[in-house]
Design a protein around this nucleic acid. Structure first.
Length: 676
DNA sequence: TTAGGGTTAG
């Protein structure tokens, strides 16, 4: 007995295989291996030394195995992340009549969580309840994790309330659970409740709170969490700093994000990545790409996440050359899968290289939903509705489950290709066969599908069949856009008024309303729209266009006189203008937001950034070269018309991508027909 | 229990 007492601490601290096997032999020769505690420790030590297979051999040879030995083996597998083995042992243990305890249940449920097997997890949780562990903090916490990962927040809350002595980990799990499910407000509420119970928070909860603030856009509260940590002398580590960077960046405060980033004493790839993605997501693609280079310069190797953010930046501005090189880099690192593959596909399609996107897509085995969705939406934004539909059908054939985003992309693709009947059919299928409830975004797509095809009344009927609280801006915006295109002024006016009532915070939608009123020459209403924009504190986003010429990206603002080739571009546009007019082009001046003199309006139109980008492209590329232009806001209706003529005059394929979709101009027609 | 990354309307 005395020997065992001496051996156990030795076993626990042993970090050396040969010493361990000597201790092992000693246990055997002295006949002590049968003692529970020594066997358990031996298994744990072998496992900790990385020899899990040998630990298993020891375990298998034990003549008597109590719950501690089983748990030691289960914990060993769990630490290695071998979830299947954990569950195998768990069930074997039960079949051998061993009563699991709190640890066994905790580990087994944790294994289910990592396998995303909600059903199995719930089954084990019921067993735990039967064995009397309903109020156990460890078991409860593992179940919380299981439920919060599976999005079952109501069930999680119920379990949480049953836990008798909630420790900090329980509270934290609940807070981060709400955060992960996008319920920032609930997360903060749980934290307040925790404080009421007299529990002090640590860095981990604070981290969750900062993320909650990021989510709900409450930067002020996020800062006060930070201040609270400083007051309480809680250590501000790189995780906290990075989350703060992320909070500022995601809420558009890039300057603050940057200065917080500079505060980080030991920046790592994640901190860099938070900043890179912040710039990329806010449309500052050039800065994002520069940061990626700077990051490498200071010796921080970009990880997949930062490369994915950089790809997003390339997508934003249509920088195909850079995107391609990032793709090649990812291939060299052999990391083209799931997230990165999706980003690569998205980049190719948004940069106009749809066929490259398809090639990458076909190469990926084991496609997940998001990857399928990316391919469907790629075809959608290029106006290839039938191709999008066939990818969708292929997806169903391979038994992948479409989600709500799949249908949103599909409907949008069908709508832009005028496939009204298919849209109607799959809208019903989504609800009836796939049991996916139609959300506002789906209604918006279907309303758009009808309205785009001129079926304005049918669109309105659909809106009237919806629950009123789902009548968001997107719904009325889609209707208004259809009315605008089909000159359906009375329903359009109603939709325009509804949009204004809802006080959008997005300048794009105000432009739509203003253009609608402008097209019926209601200048008083146009002025009201501008006033409303001012009141909500909206500025019209300055439009810019990008064009990639010989692997370099060039940006143009409207009427950008500073450019070194400005004169030549204007000459080129004037020459084109003459030829266009001779062919029957009439400027559509209603697309100018302001109520100006006709002549001024015309010059403003002809200096739109997309036209400057086209002129620059024409001047600096070989005849016949395809031009790809990227625009940060919607291409204006007049430019859309003009580019049709230009494509015919210069005999070039011109591709313009605006906020969301592509316009392929060739021989005087646009792939999207008369809709813009 | 511990930060950053992929798809989705107008």
């Amino acid at each position: 007995m005395c020997l065992t007492k001496q051996l156990i601490p030795l076993l626990s601290s042993c970090r050396n295989k040969s010493t361990l096997s000597k201790l092992h032999s000693l246990l055997i020769t002295s006949g002590l291996l049968n003692q529970r505690s020594s066997a358990t420790k031996l298994i744990a030590s072998y496992a900790q030394n990385g020899d899990i297979d040998f630990a298993r051999q020891v375990f298998d040879k034990l003549p008597q195995r109590g719950v501690d030995a089983w748990n030691a083996m289960i914990v060993a597998y769990s630490r290695m992340g071998f979830a299947t083995e954990v569950l195998g042992l768990y069930w074997k243990m039960i079949s051998e009549g061993i009563k699991p305890d709190s640890s066994s249940f905790t580990m087994a449920i944790k294994a289910c969580t990592s396998l995303c097997d909600l059903e199995m997890g719930e089954k084990i949780w019921h067993q735990a309840v039967d064995y009397g562990y309903k109020n156990d903090a460890f078991v409860g916490c593992s179940v919380l994790n299981l439920f919060t990962r599976g999005g079952k927040m109501i069930e999680a809350k119920t379990v949480f309330e049953e836990i008798k002595r909630k420790d900090l980990v329980c509270w934290t799990t609940m807070v981060t659970g709400f955060v992960k499910n996008g319920q920032g407000i609930e997360a903060i509420e749980v934290f307040r409740e925790m404080r009421k119970q007299g529990m002090e928070g640590d860095g981990v909860v604070m981290l969750g709170l900062i993320q909650a603030c990021t989510d709900i856009g409450d930067v002020k509260m996020g800062v006060s969490v930070y201040a609270h940590m400083i007051r309480r002398n809680l250590p501000i580590d790189v995780l906290i700093y990075t989350s703060l960077v992320d909070m500022y960046a995601k809420n558009g405060h890039l300057g603050l994000a940057y200065s917080m980033f500079c505060n980080i004493p030991q920046k790592n790839a994640v901190s860099w990545s938070a900043l890179v993605s912040g710039y990329a997501q806010n449309g500052f693609a050039g800065e994002a790409l520069e940061l990626l280079i700077e990051m490498q310069r200071v010796g921080c190797k970009p990880d997949l996440a930062s490369l994915v953010s950089a790809l997003l930046a390339c997508s934003h501005v249509g920088y195909l050359k850079k995107g391609k090189s990032i793709h090649a880099y990812i291939l060299r690192r052999q990391e083209l899968k799931h997230v990165s593959a999706t980003a690569v596909i998205d980049m190719y399609s948004k940069c106009g290289a749809l066929s490259s996107a398809r090639v990458v897509f076909d190469m990926i085995s084991g496609k997940d939903v998001i990857l399928w969705n990316a391919m469907i939406s790629s075809y959608g934004i290029h106006g290839h509705g039938i191709a999008a539909l066939s990818v969708f059908q292929e997806m169903i054939k391979t038994n992948s489950n479409p989600d709500d985003a799949t249908f949103a992309s599909l409907f949008s693709a069908l709508g832009h290709s005028g496939l009204v009947e298919q849209g109607r059919y799959w809208f019903d299928e989504m609800r009836n066969t796939f049991k996916i409830e139609a959300k506002e975004k789906h209604y918006a797509c279907i309303v758009d599908l009808f309205a785009r095809a001129g079926k304005v009344e049918e669109a309105l009927d659909l809106i009237n069949s919806m629950k009123v609280h789902d009548h968001g801006i997107s719904i009325w915006g889609a209707l208004l856009s259809g009315c605008h295109n089909h000159k359906r002024y009375s329903i359009g006016e109603m939709a325009a008024k509804k949009v204004l009532q809802l006080q959008p915070d997005d300048s794009g939608i105000y432009s739509l309303v203003a253009n609608f009123f402008a097209s019926v020459k209601k200048w008083k209403e146009v002025a009201e729209v501008r006033k409303a924009m001012r009141e909500v504190g909206m500025k019209k986003v300055p439009g810019y266009s990008m064009v990639e010429v010989k692997g370099k990206l060039h940006a143009f603002l409207m009427d950008d006189k500073s450019h070194y080739q400005y004169k030549q571009m204007v000459n080129m546009l004037e020459k084109l203008d003459h030829e266009m007019r001779a062919m029957g082009y009439v400027p559509k001046t209603e697309f100018v937001l302001h109520d100006l003199e006709e002549e001024v309006k015309v010059t403003m139109l002809s200096n739109h950034s997309e036209r400057l980008a086209i002129a620059f492209g024409l001047l600096n590329t070989e005849p016949g070269t395809k031009l790809v232009i990227t625009k940060n806001i919607r291409v204006c209706g007049d430019c859309h018309e003009a580019i049709k003529y230009i494509s015919k005059i210069v005999d070039r394929e011109i591709v313009v991508r605006d906020v969301k979709r592509f316009h392929h101009f060739k021989h005087g027609v646009c792939s999207c027909g008369d809709y813009w």
